[in-house]
């Protein structure tokens, strides 16, 4: 039986694991991978105290820190959660774990386009990561789909490598940051294709064209001859599997209170998967800490200890590792 099971290995989850470990709580992190969206960030320059670091290096440091404080990390995908009396049962594809408290911090997942040809051509021209795959499209023509920061960033990255970049967006303007839109205007080999939606990816063995339609007139079709299609249409919280277990808000995010408590006692939520107002690494990390402290308080309450004993400060921990620790709770 664990004290805390954290679902998700991004900044929120790892921060929960650090705080859990420091409170001498037996903590397990179940994650598909380490870092989630943060790991893909090229450069993080707004995390206080750190001048500049790649997203991956930052989350790997968090992972090391969590392990140093005794948290266990397993690469397993969580598929179910339920509560029986005071026991929370977390199911993965391969195992079942029991815990006193759970922290859900599994972040956001890139959205699919959902058009014919998309899945068939993954790895054959369709890509979800411009920084990863840009070098494969040297001197070729590509289309980037989307209108947010990540889409424009992808178009700018591709413009330096590809001969021509179409930027396909369903609105009549971009909702990205001004600085990016400004760079976009200055880049000659990017052609914005506005008021247009992607309909189909076509080709032979590899991608040959992207079919787009006018948003106002479905019959106005245009074939863009491209070798690659980069999909950057935003992120979404994958919360279907918990929707019958706890309260989800109208945007599909997990609803929580100011102590990160969800509608189920003993289950907490933190970071991008929750209704956090801003999706930022520092905020996710802060929420992870809040959730772990609240979980600690909840565990003390379960054990019948007075809540006053759990001061809202983090005093660190003694030298014993959680494996050696006496049964405190």
């Amino acid at each position: 039986m664990y004290d805390i099971i954290v679902v998700g290995g991004g900044p929120a989850g790892l921060s929960s694991a650090i705080y859990g470990g420091r409170r001498m709580l037996k903590t397990l992190v179940l994650a598909k991978n380490i870092g989630g969206q943060a790991a893909i960030a090229k450069n993080v320059e707004n995390y206080p105290g750190i001048d500049s670091i790649t997203g991956l290096d930052l989350v790997l440091k968090m992972k090391e820190q969590a392990e140093k404080f005794g948290a266990e990390i397993k690469f397993e995908e969580v598929v179910g959660i339920e509560k029986k009396d005071d026991k929370i049962i977390v199911k993965t594809n391969t195992a079942k774990y029991e815990t006193k408290a759970a922290i859900l911090s599994f972040g956001l997942t890139p959205r699919d386009l959902g058009v014919p040809g998309e899945k068939e051509y993954i790895g054959k021209g369709v890509s979800y990561c411009a920084t990863c795959d840009a070098p494969f499209f040297k001197n070729k023509t590509v289309a980037v789909i989307g209108g947010g920061n990540s889409a424009i960033d992808a178009a700018l990255v591709m413009s330096k490598i590809a001969t021509k970049v179409y930027l396909v967006h369903r609105r009549d303007g971009f909702r990205a940051e001004d600085a990016l839109v400004c760079q976009l205007r200055e880049t000659k080999n990017i052609e914005p294709v506005l008021n247009s939606v992607a309909k189909e990816v076509k080709g032979g063995d590899f991608v040959e064209k992207l079919v787009v339609a006018d948003v106002n007139d479905e019959n106005k079709i245009r074939d863009l001859k491209v070798d690659g299609v980069f999909i950057e249409v935003g992120l979404l919280p994958k919360t279907e599997w918990v929707k019958d277990f706890l309260k989800i808000d109208e945007n599909g995010q997990i609803a929580k209170d100011k102590k990160c408590a969800t509608s189920v006692e003993g289950v907490f939520a933190a970071g991008d998967v929750s209704d956090a107002a801003y999706k930022q690494i520092i905020i996710a990390a802060g929420e992870g800490a809040t959730a772990a402290l609240a979980a600690h308080q909840y565990i003390l309450k379960l054990a019948g200890k007075s809540i006053a004993e759990s001061a809202p400060f983090d005093w660190g921990r003694c030298a014993t590792t959680p494996k050696e620790k006496p049964n405190l709770y």
Partner: peptide, 26 residues
Amino acid sequence: IMSIPTILIFEKGKVKKQLVGLQTKE
């Protein structure tokens, strides 16, 4: 290969399986 990470599984010198993108351990 046009997208990474890509995992290829070879059997007797031939590609038997191709997996594109980040995969789970399971």
